[in-house]
């Protein structure tokens, strides 16, 4: 099983899928309980113009440049949503819808108009997800491990540390943010930090998982775990386990099932992972012990 092909092609894709699923399912819980899941959708769409503008300004696809551009764009999107909500008094759902559309449209426009074809930066990866395109040229060597695996791995560790050390604060702020403020834990500072982390994770997931499919990674594990338990400790743990196991299962299903069925092609891995997460959620919504 551990032959060269597996290590060069499947292993990096699996790692990416698992890391993306794990960090999204942890952070997804925070959006889920704040009833702001769709904010994740708005922010992931706004990664796109950031990449295009960074490319236009910097002239290269160097990862640090892309990361910087995308993060800057997501932060602009956050500010724009806040501005519409507060100064413009636009309902929050509409503010997200507007910012999402404008940012994504700007990305598409600039890409088609200014960049043109031929550059490895296209809308298809953003829309379809391209988990299976990751490649580890010399397996088991750190140097040749794809950069987005390294960065997503670092973010995942950061995430786990956040939930480990600040679990108490997370519980307090999610349950009752006003009270948290009175007890001396500023929810604004905490949530800003979390949003920054979400931004970085979304940038990391951009071309492997895709802007829309990442939403399933954010919401489904939290929603599944919610059908199973009534304690936040369990909720976080279950959602992480569900995220990881569905990533592995989904990847195998996408790449191996069609072959077993006698068809020589594989399916979109990110799509199948999102779909298995969704099917698990449907199952648990129908039969989970804490579904109501």
């Amino acid at each position: 099983m551990l032959d060269h092909d597996f290590m060069a092609l499947d292993a990096p894709a699996l790692m990416l899928g698992v890391l993306a699923a794990l960090s999204c399912s942890l952070l997804g819980n925070i959006l889920f309980f704040r009833r702001q899941v769709m904010l994740g959708d708005a922010l992931s769409h706004s990664v796109f113009p950031g990449l295009v503008i960074a490319y236009l300004l910097g002239g290269s696809l160097a990862p640090p440049l892309m990361f910087l551009g995308a993060s800057a764009a997501v932060l602009c999107a956050l500010l724009a949503i806040r501005l519409l909500e507060t100064a413009g008094r636009v309902p929050s759902s509409a503010a997200m819808a507007i910012v999402l559309s404008i940012f994504f449209a700007l990305g598409v426009f600039l890409l088609e108009n200014q960049v043109g074809g031929g550059v490895h930066l296209d809308t298809e990866h953003a829309l379809y997800g391209a988990l299976e395109l990751s490649y580890w040229p010399e397996p088991f060597t750190w140097a040749s491990l794809p950069l987005n695996i390294k960065s997503l791995g670092f973010l995942t560790i950061l995430n786990i540390l956040l939930f480990f050390f600040f679990f108490k604060e997370i519980r307090l702020i999610l349950f009752n943010s006003e009270y948290a403020g009175l007890a001396g834990f500023s929810p604004q500072i905490f949530i800003s930090g979390v949003l920054l982390l979400i931004t970085l994770v979304l940038v990391g997931c951009f071309d492997s998982v895709g802007v829309i499919l990442v939403l399933a990674f954010l919401v489904c594990p939290a929603a599944c775990a919610r059908m199973l338990c009534d304690r936040l400790e369990q909720q976080i743990l279950y959602s992480a386990v569900i995220g990881i196991s569905m990533a592995v299962f989904g990847y195998i299903a996408a790449t191996r099932f069609p072959l077993w069925l006698g068809w020589e092609h594989s399916l979109s891995a990110a799509g199948v992972i999102a779909l298995t997460l969704g099917l698990l959620q449907v199952t648990l919504m129908l039969w989970g012990p804490r579904r109501i």
Binding site: L172, F175, Y179, A180, R231, Q234
Partner: peptide, 21 residues
């Protein structure tokens, strides 16, 4: 919200325990 009654009551001590405690 997934918290027990005891979890909620203990929140009264969070301010005293502080960050990271």
């Amino acid at each position: 919200f997934p918290v027990s009654a005891l979890d909620v009551v203990q929140m009264g001590l969070y301010g005293q325990i502080g960050w990271l405690g």
